[in-house]
Amino acid sequence: MDDVVVLRLSNHLPDLDRLAEAVEAFGERHGFPRKMIYQVRLVLDELLTNVISYGFSDDKQHEIEVEMRLAGSKLLFRIEDDAAPFDPLQANSPDLTSSVEDRAIGGLGIHLVRKLMDLVRYERREGKNRLFLEKTIS
């Protein structure tokens, strides 16, 4: 049977600690390898940090919903927020081949998300960003 955890976070960076704890607990409950737990925590941290830091132009409180689901050998995530439209798949990839001196600072977070997940799908619907992520447990 699927194990599903849904978290509702507010748009404050300290709330990400709760997310990290939930990922750790979920991963340990199912005996995921350390690397997998770390990478999943990292991906969610990068995405949510972006949404909270850049997604809202008002001073109001917003809710961000994160769902984690274990289905067979797949770990599925859904992130839903009412921030400004942002499709991480459209972001430019950072240049990781330039020399140290010329290497740009930034863009790394989204790059890590795309590399560490097996599948990333974005949709904008009813004024909300919805991001679906998938990673096969290994």
Binding site: Y38, D45, E46, T49, E101, R103, L108
Partner: peptide
Amino acid sequence: DYINSTGLRVLLLALQQLKK
């Protein structure tokens, strides 16, 4: 036990400053 892109960015900044 944990590093994210902000941490990685500081490493690159440090390397660039030192190289300079």
